[in-house]
Amino acid sequence: MAGFQVVKDGSVVIVKISGEMDAHTAPQLDKVLKEAASQGTKLLLDMAQMSYIATAALGVLMANHNTLKTKGGKIVIANMQEKIKKVFDTMGFSKVFPVASSIEEAKKLL
């Protein structure tokens, strides 16, 4: 079961993602990120409660990253679980998305 919570914190839009992000739930992630991006161009994704990621969701992250980049925006990630981080590293996504170990650290990267 995928869950999302969007909170505006000053100029930063924090998106808390929970559950499993696969090809079935990736369209929901895309919708939430697009809505979040309409509130601000600095997105902070809190992945503490996200337990799985498939490439469909990685593709969604990349597509939203590309769109935000053209607007001078950015996506940073906080609290990624170790197994997800390894997928990120293997796929080269860690070189595209700044990853921090806490929300406070992630804010500094925006």
């Binding site: 490439t55 990349m62 796929m91 080269g92 996504f93 070189k95 595209v96």
Partner: peptide
Amino acid sequence: HLQKGNTHGLG
């Protein structure tokens, strides 16, 4: 691939 923003072929 990613530098160009491509996401196909990830699977």
